[in-house]
Amino acid sequence: MRGLDLDYMLGLVPVILGYVPLTLGMAAAGMVLALILASLLAVERVFRLPWLDWAVVLFISFFRGTPLLVQLFLFYYGLPQVLSVLTSIDGVTAAIMGLTLHFSAYMAETIRAAILGVDRSQWEAAQSIGMTQLQMMRRIILPQAARVAAPTLVNYFIDMIKGTSLAFTLGVTEMMGAAQKEAAGSFLYFEAFLVVALIYWAMVELLSQGQKRLETYLNKAYAR
């Protein structure tokens, strides 16, 4: 039993904080791309295009049914052996791609449920006034679905931030990778990983506060 080396930990904080932009950047990029992909997948699942539906079902099933770590390894270490265009892919890009595909599968299900949750009669009202399907989705259905899905999607964003730590296994020096390197030099593994844990925790707590505000705002929506 030894005491914590607090001085070492305090010194490490700014070092790890220096990698926060990379972590948040990967998560933000993954989130934006996943939202776009998930919306497309969800809309397809709602309208069930006959020549595409099976592929979307398969996609969602695969990316929900396999671990994120396995998917990342498959992309980064596996695929380049089969597809030579991918040999030059760097770890950050591979991590963002993996996070995007993985989380889009989950988010698609959330968005699909939110779309189908919009009262059927509003779909009919939109059709009855002569809206095209695109107009109906854009102006009536998706805005309401977005409000329903938003709190859950923020949860996925939190998951995604934590998921970026796996990029370390692809050789990316992000927060986790930096802590690992520091610890390897100082042998103070406990301190190094505690610092990185506390910084993740603080980031997620900050986001959770924002999420609570968002929920309060969404709950009073349309009630004026």
């Binding site: 009669s121 509003q122 009919e124 006034i129 349309y222």
Partner: peptide, 17 residues
């Protein structure tokens, strides 16, 4: 559809408007 207008039993107003 654009030649007719429909009034629904359950109103069917757009809840977000």
């Amino acid at each position: 559809r654009r030649r007719s207008a429909f009034v629904f039993q359950n109103y069917a107003l757009f809840a977000n408007k």
